[in-house]
């Protein structure tokens, strides 16, 4: 009846297949047509179907259909969900707190403290008055069009997530640079995090946490944005001049002294480049994360899409661009200062 009957007949697996035709799921359209017309469906060699799960299922009921696979995955995830939650929930709780606190602080402070404070940070990092002026103009504009609160929310989320990325990313990068085995293990994970569409890891996260919890989007952002800082820390430390490391060894430095006295300072330009990338990627992700209740400018973008408010969408998009420019320029200025002091 089905194309691949011959395999199971040939191998004598007919019994194993159970042959319980009754348990078969919905038939294919072709089968249905064939049944109603009382004729056997003839499949020409040209139309031979790929031996996929569904096609093999037609020949043998013991083979699952592909929708069994996806529902199996789902069931599997739901089964481990509760036990996973027991472990992951308390571990990630501080993230929720940090995000809540930061959101609260940045919105509670009045604008006439917040904007000068941000200007001061820009000066401290970049030592350039031009940069400070850029920060003032951008935030002034965003506040002028009444997007101040949204901007602060976005910024608060980025600050927290980027900080946590650096907090975990740099040590992971160091571990990778010290051991080829760790590096070999980490690279596929990093590749996966980088290539997986961001929406894809939002899905299991929604199952795992409630949508009201900030850590839901926090984790999504961190997973997406942590990759560059890990990669560039690893690269930076591996690129440190081997002669200098040899000199450190020859003068009897301990591993610790080498790490903090030589490797990290010399890898700093690369690490800062990673931090810059991480901040930019968390900004990209914070927009997507508004799908799962992340506050900020992303919400406005989403509103623009959902209710076709073109103006809101465009203006909030511009706001994100301005934020991106500021964050990029400020971190690049910091990077340039490090580079200048190290040649």
């Amino acid at each position: 009846m089905a194309t691949y009957d011959f395999i199971f007949d040939g191998l004598g697996l007919r019994d194993w297949c159970g042959d319980g035709e009754k348990s078969g799921g919905p038939m294919s359209m072709a089968d249905l047509l064939g049944e109603t017309s009382g004729q056997k469906v003839e499949v020409s060699a040209w139309d031979t179907p790929f031996p996929s799960l569904d096609n093999l299922h037609d020949a043998c009921n013991a083979i699952p259909q592909s929708r069994d696979l996806t529902s199996g995955l789902e069931r599997g995830f739901l089964d481990i969900k509760d036990s996973l939650k027991i472990v992951v929930d308390p571990l990630t709780q501080p993230l929720s707190w940090a995000l809540n606190e930061m959101l609260w602080v940045m919105q509670a402070l009045p604008w006439w403290i917040m904007i000068p404070l941000l200007m001061l940070i820009a000066y401290a990092v970049g030592r350039s008055m031009k940069l400070v002026a850029l920060v003032a103009v951008c935030f002034g504009f965003l506040a002028f069009v009444d997007y101040y609160d949204y901007t602060m929310q976005t910024l608060a989320i980025i600050f927290v997530c980027a900080f946590i990325c650096v907090l975990f990313g740099v040590p992971i990068g160091i571990a990778m640079s010290r051991s080829d085995r760790v590096q070999r293990m980490m690279i596929p994970i990093l590749d996966m995090l980088q290539t997986l569409p961001p929406f894809v890891y939002l899905i299991p996260l929604i199952f795992l946490f409630s949508v009201t919890e900030p850590k839901l989007y926090g984790i999504a952002i961190i997973l997406y944005a942590i990759v560059p800082v890990i990669r560039l820390t690893d690269l930076g430390i591996r690129l440190v001049d081997r002669d200098v490391i040899e000199a450190a060894d020859a003068f009897g430095m301990t591993k610790r002294q080498k790490l903090f006295g030589v490797q990290i300072p010399l890898a700093l330009p690369n690490i800062m480049a990673g931090v810059n990338q991480t901040i930019m990627m968390s900004l990209a992700m914070v927009v997507i994360a508004s799908l799962v209740s992340a506050p900020g400018l992303g919400v406005l973008v989403l509103r623009g899409i959902r209710s076709l408010e073109l103006g809101v969408g465009l203006l909030s998009g511009l706001g994100i661009v301005l934020l991106a420019i500021i964050l990029d320029r400020v971190t690049k200025a910091a990077l340039a200062r490090i580079n200048a002091s190290q040649k």
Partner: peptide
């Protein structure tokens, strides 16, 4: 012991100087 040897009893000068740039 090896660190002690390198710190106190042997010093090294390198072809490419190998100074700490920072």
């Amino acid at each position: 012991q090896l660190r002690d040897l390198r710190q106190h009893h042997m010093s090294m000068v390198f072809q490419k100087f190998a100074l700490f740039p920072h």
